[in-house]
Write a protein that binds this DNA or RNA. Sequence first.
DNA 1: GGATACAATTA
DNA 2: CTAATTGTATCCA
Length: 977
Amino acid sequence: MKKGDHLFLVDGSAYIFRAYHALPPLTRKSDGLPIGAVSGFCNMLWKLLRNARDTEMGITPTHFAVIFDYSSKTFRNDLYDEYKANRSAPPDDLVPQFGLIREATRAFDVACIEQEGFEADDIIATYCRLACEAGGDTTVISSDKDLMQLVGPTVGMYDPMKDKEIGVDEVIEKFGVPPEKMIDLQALTGDSIDNVPGVPGIGPKTAAQLLEEFGDLDTLLAKADTIKQKKRRENLIEHADNARLSRELVTLRDDVDLELPLDALTLDELDGPKLIGFLKAMQFTSLTRRVAEQTEADAASIEAAEVPVEWEEARGPDLDPGEGPSKDDVLPGSSADGMTPQAFAESRAAEIRDIAFDHEKYETVGNIQHLREWIAEARERGHVAFDTETDSLDPMQATLCGFSLAVEPGRACYVPLCHREGEGDLLGASSLSDGQIPEKEALDALRDLLADPACLKIGQNIKFDMLVTARYGLPLVNFDDTMLISYVIEAGRTAGNQGGHGMDPLADRWLGHKPIPYKEVCGSGKSAITFDRVPIDKATHYAAEDADITLRLWLAMKPRLVAEGVVSVYERLERPLVPVIAKMEEAGVSIDRQILSRLSGEFGQQAAGIEAEIYEMAGESFNIGSPKQLGDILFGRMGLPGGSKTKTGQWSTSARVLEDLAAEGHPLPRRIVDWRQLTKLKSTYTDALPGYIHPETRRVHTSYQMAATTTGRLSSSEPNLQNIPIRTSEGRKIRTAFIAEPGNVLISADYSQIELRILAHIADIPQLRQAFADGIDIHAMTASEMFGVPVEGMPSEVRRRAKAINFGIIYGISAFGLANQLSIERGEAGEYIKRYFERFPGIRDYMDSTKAFAREHGYVETLFGRRAYYPDIRSSNHSVRAFNERAAINAPIQGSAADIIRRAMIRMDGVLEEAKLDAKMLLQVHDELIFELPKDQADAAIPLIQEVMENAAMPAVDMAVPLQVDAQAASNWDEAH
DNA sequence: GGATACAATTA
DNA sequence: CTAATTGTATCCA
């Protein structure tokens, strides 16, 4: 190696894990071999090497190697035997990919390096040092912070997934310290993934600040006693040794005795046919094609290589028979001929991922002719991505600032409508910016596009855009929603990261692209501006990018619906519900301010009285709302026996614990429970709800999230109208404030025991089926089966226990949970469960087979084919696994019920309309629908609503158990329910 | 101001 | 023991 040479070092092991989690899971079409990470790896290597051969741009490596960890045990374990002890075994579908990635490296004719006893990072550090000494430059292909300590004048890093170079400045930007201080920073923060201890309570921000102040770790530890913050000071002093140990653990060794010298890493000419053989074996069609083009090899004449792989499973995809793609699922430019849907979806996703973003190419549309051209092109093509920009996240309040369109990847525009400039605080002082089409003219043109049934509008969370455009008098027909497509294909796969199905995480996962952050355009906090204040050129970059991303996501994801056999879930349970829910949100519900205000006063007074009693009993005043202070009083000063502890080691003051104390004769805990209940009712409901009354409609418009839960349920927020109190008489009063307009009534229609009925159907339990067919009290029946007590004259306590068990079954019962619920010993709860399974062995069979299915496939299905993914069900951690098993048992039951009410909601409008009823569906509360309609139509509507709901599973599923719906009309929600 | 913990509410 | 959202307290930047 000599001056001017450039060494590329790929951190192979880190890449594998990152690619596995970040990229959509791919499988080889012929046998289901998982190859997602391999695919990402090959695409990355190809990109790096292709750039390498293009001397016009980028850096040209002369030396190249991929480095892997050899085994998990290294010299660091001798320093600290807990090192990396938190690492769980790699997922089953990643294991075969380790070998494949090494094969891929060889197919690319690149050095593949691993050495026993050392981590890839140490080998990388050593090569870096050698290259530097020889006068060459190095680029480390990784984004691992552990490697950032190597960055310097001749060493850079490159994050292949974010296409981002990391130099000295980037390290400082990200961590607030220069690379040479990264070791000290990591020593302080530790690393929970690698189980490096660090100092508790110190995160990257604090660490950077401390190092800035003290210079380095040793100085810091020596002067730790001068630190002001108490906790921080104590932790630094107490854990100083851990910090020193951590420093040793995170310091990379650059003196590894290398098996392969630096000069052996020279980059050879690519062997096209060899690489193509491998890619063909993996069935990477689009990369094969590109490599063939580049190397001028004849791909057709090259046979797929034999690639050794340890993989026993050979399962095909589970396509629902007879459920083909519908007409509008035939995608533009489709080259699916001769390909399986799976292979097509894969190659499409890979194709889309490779198209670069260029914000400069987006157009701003400032005259009507230009807009008409865009709309004509969209209608010509038959599909267009559409996104509105507004000044509010609330679609019922939002003012339209502009909209964007995208017709093909990279080709997108923004149409500003009412951007303003100048001071806004004085009336009329701001003025409309130049270069905007008059709003009415632009909207009239847009109407032709949105109302055109022959042109598919593609949105991300299109319910929002639908509500906004509806308020401007524009109907939106024929649409797709990328958020819902994502929800159908990977509910639960993506839990954790924000939103899961929001634009940012989707763009990251499917396109490897980070959109312009909203904060960068509009600022945040106090200095935030509304979108109409954003300069138009800046707005175009942001808004057109959103439409561009939406279009790309649609292109990349939609074929997956077919590939995974879930088209009907999307087309029958998700998409048609969008306009239904939009209408419900738009309708809103009427709330009586006066009732709430009166209740607020009552609750406030009662709470104040109880507060005084509490201080009296406690002998001092304190903040009752602080669990910490309350715990100190109850279990410290007053010396009451503590029950359980919370996960942070505090004494629990949950209602459960307090009620147990009350039962032992202590008067104070009871009052605490009462106080909490009243303050909850006041703050969350009677005080907060009036604030949600819309200034113009005078009604409350909740927002339903269609892609928020793993099971298929909706959720409601701002305000949440799915948790309005009902259990206690005090809470119930709040429901009287939900009223019908004068002359109208509310109808509440709810499914009776729908989840138990679904369980009886799915698990096929004869006694349960019979009981539901006969209309018997199901909990009493369970009690009599289990305890041999006749239903007649059964003590209520016996029935209560049976009821808790029935619920427990639906929740994937555990002795711990049941014991907690019933305040009994775990052993006794275990006995109950045992006895239950003896009487209903079919339930145990259902649970076992559901668990087995989930473990094998990674997901479970509802009666209607909706999937809920539980990737952690294979966790080696017992409690994580058990939790996922319970969730997997519950999901088909809860999810099937959710699917049934969705079907009812989708059909409801048409049925009511046909019957000439002016009923409006207002709310959904999981198993209940609320309608508002003229008083004199209630008698006609009730049986119709019941019929639609009771038959909602038909004809897709013919339930072995009848569904029963109870419905009543009244002037408020309390009486209707 | 943002993140986290805990407790409340619902089906 | 399943699935959610919201409000208050608390800690830290």
